[in-house]
Simulated assay, not measured.
Amino acid sequence: MHIPWSLVARFGEASFLVPLAAFVALRLTFQGLWRQAFYWIFTLCAGAAVIVAGKLAFEFGGWSIPAANLYSISGHAMLTASVYPMLLTVLGSIWSERTARIGMKAGISVAMLAATALIAGHYHTVAETLIGTGVGFVVAWANLRPSCRHMPVVPAPTLNRFMLGMVLVVMVPVSIYPVRVRLWSQGLDWIGVTERYSRKIGIDPVSGRTVVTIIQGRLRS
């Protein structure tokens, strides 16, 4: 059976997960957990900064570790590993502590599936995916470790229905609209970048090993 890895990988799009991360902060805020909501946003931004720094180092400076097939760290892996465990834990806490724990495990499973899709679909190398996933899990752990996990079950039927409904309504249109690509392009124009490194991942048909081709080109003015 052919697995649509490209479809699975889309669940790690920033334009899809950033609104869901905002839903997490909103839910925590309505529970009165202002400090935890701020900490969630802060740690997520810190994790994203690590990924962006790595991407900038490669794409505009050519930094890489060819021996480890490490070039562009996966932002998809980082976001799935941080947002889904947190999102499903918070949504699970709507009903009980048990469903919150189930949600956390489900979120971890989704992150691992997304990581598999990134590697199997040749979007990222193993090293790029593992580092991105690792950073994401650190963010999730920082928010879900026992000393920080204070998510009491708060009865709020109207809010709960609104939250779940908005997750379903926002999923499709936001995932299609390429917010990240547009912002990235405008940022390049703003700082005056004219050259960019990229890489293409393939498999050697003889040895079966991963082959990475580096491409250097000028950006259109």
Rank of each mutant, 00 (worst) to 15 (best):
35 R>K: 09
36 Q>D: 15
36 Q>W: 07
38 F>V: 14
39 Y>K: 10
41 I>K: 05
41 I>Q: 13
41 I>M: 06
43 T>A: 12
44 L>E: 02
45 C>D: 09
46 A>Q: 06
48 A>E: 11
49 A>L: 13
49 A>R: 07
51 I>V: 08
54 G>W: 00
57 A>I: 13
57 A>C: 08
57 A>W: 04
58 F>L: 06
58 F>K: 00
58 F>A: 07
59 E>P: 03
59 E>A: 11
59 E>T: 13
60 F>M: 07
61 G>S: 15
62 G>L: 09
63 W>Y: 13
64 S>M: 11
64 S>F: 04
64 S>E: 08
65 I>K: 09
66 P>V: 10
66 P>T: 11
67 A>G: 03
69 N>M: 09
72 S>H: 14
73 I>S: 08
73 I>A: 01
73 I>H: 01
74 S>D: 12
75 G>D: 04
75 G>A: 02
75 G>P: 04
76 H>I: 02
76 H>L: 05
79 L>F: 14
80 T>F: 05
80 T>V: 13
80 T>Y: 04
80 T>M: 10
81 A>I: 01
81 A>E: 01
84 Y>M: 06
85 P>C: 10
87 L>S: 06
89 T>M: 04
89 T>G: 11
91 L>G: 03
91 L>M: 05
92 G>S: 07
92 G>H: 02
93 S>C: 11
93 S>T: 05
95 W>K: 06
96 S>Y: 10
97 E>W: 08
98 R>F: 11
98 R>A: 05
98 R>V: 03
99 T>G: 08
99 T>P: 05
99 T>Q: 05
100 A>D: 04
100 A>L: 03
101 R>T: 08
101 R>M: 13
103 G>Q: 01
104 M>A: 04
104 M>P: 04
106 A>E: 03
106 A>D: 04
106 A>V: 02
107 G>K: 01
107 G>Q: 03
107 G>D: 01
108 I>W: 09
109 S>W: 12
109 S>V: 08
109 S>R: 12
110 V>A: 08
111 A>G: 00
112 M>E: 13
113 L>A: 11
113 L>D: 02
113 L>S: 04
115 A>W: 01
118 L>Y: 09
119 I>V: 14
119 I>W: 00
121 G>E: 02
122 H>E: 08
124 H>C: 06
124 H>K: 02
125 T>R: 00
125 T>N: 00
126 V>T: 02
126 V>F: 03
127 A>E: 08
127 A>M: 08
128 E>F: 01
129 T>Q: 00
129 T>F: 00
131 I>S: 04
131 I>C: 06
131 I>W: 01
132 G>S: 15
133 T>Y: 13
134 G>W: 14
134 G>R: 06
135 V>G: 07
137 F>H: 05
137 F>A: 07
138 V>T: 09
140 A>V: 04
140 A>G: 05
141 W>T: 07
141 W>C: 07
141 W>F: 14
142 A>V: 11
142 A>P: 14
143 N>M: 15
143 N>T: 14
144 L>F: 10
145 R>Y: 09
147 S>A: 11
147 S>H: 12
147 S>F: 09
149 R>M: 05
149 R>Y: 10
150 H>C: 14
150 H>R: 12
151 M>K: 09
151 M>L: 14
151 M>H: 13
153 V>R: 15
153 V>P: 05
154 V>G: 13
157 P>M: 14
157 P>W: 14
158 T>A: 12
158 T>I: 12
158 T>V: 14
159 L>S: 13
159 L>E: 15
